[in-house]
Design a protein around this nucleic acid. Structure first.
Lengths: 154, 154
DNA sequence: ATGTTTCGTTAGTGGGACGAACGTTAGTGT
DNA sequence: ACACTAACGTTCGTCCCACTAACGAAACAT
């Protein structure tokens, strides 16, 4: 499975090793894989989690709004909702007030599943960020958030 | 061009907004795009930079070693070297000592090009990480490095 | 000699982010 | 009342990336 490759040794040139964008890329790739593999064991993907948590926390909403809140590209929302609806975790119903919209609602089983995913994700992230303590994780979150807010408004 | 989407508003549920892996993913995606677009203006890709900087800093080496040091997947090295060699930025020659190997060497124009890419990349990263000062960038690098070293040995 | 490993290479897969276009429906201006 | 514009859901397709599978050639191990 694991190729045991180097990638991070001293064998990597310094100019390369310290490029923040490169580190960001590699860390993201590896964390994403951990998350994907982990969630796959619960037959889920990260977008499933994003949708379920959004619905649970904010309430029923249209697909377009889901796209905006979760960051899922609007073309891709359809498939995600299809998958979730196919498993009975959400319900898709036409909005009587605006017939362009579908109202997506989380179901009972959906809420249960969300709790499992929440636990699972916490475990996964705990392993992914193992070498970082509480404050350091908060620091990381803060730094990344600032980068992102800047780029969005940029 | 820019869709002006939200993605980072308060409209994002808290449980989602504070997930480090999610932030990592989004930051990486956006930074990668900045880097790719930026380097594209110099008709280059980030792997070009990785290869050139490695050759310049360490010296000629085989493609396999290049793969190990840069993190480029071994199947993909071929294409990268093709592109670089096609532009005369590196030279690919059979290794007389081991006829399985190719020895890749950076050329004069390759070194020039590397300098341009170095400057360009600094500019790009400066913009990508604009909201972070020196220490904070160092902090970010340190945190990410620790995550990565842990995962590689994990 | 034989089997194993390394190297370079080709072709192909799967996923994720994104773009283009379309029919449908809601608002908006006049 | 009517044309125009914008939003919504949807489908299809594109591009890039990390990765796999398989292969011939060469080196190495025993």
């Amino acid at each position: 499975m694991n190729t045991g490759d180097a990638h991070m040794d001293e064998s990597v040139p310094a100019r390369l090793r310290n490029r923040p964008t490169r580190l960001l890329s590699m860390a993201s790739t590896r964390c994403d894989r951990l998350v994907n593999d982990g969630l796959a064991r619960a037959d889920a993907r990260k977008w499933h989690y994003a949708v379920l948590v959004t619905l649970a926390e904010i309430g029923p909403m249209s697909q377009a709004e889901l796209s905006r809140r979760t960051g899922i590209y609007h073309s891709d929302v359809v498939a995600v909702i299809n998958e979730l609806a196919g498993r009975g975790l959400v319900e898709r119903a036409p909005d009587p007030a605006d017939r362009r919209r579908n109202v997506i609602t989380i179901t009972g089983p959906g809420t249960d599943h969300l709790h499992r995913l929440d636990d699972l994700l916490s475990t996964i992230e705990d392993e992914a960020l193992a070498p970082l303590n509480r404050e350091e994780r908060a620091q990381l979150v803060e730094l990344l958030t600032r980068i992102l807010t800047h780029q969005v408004r940029g």
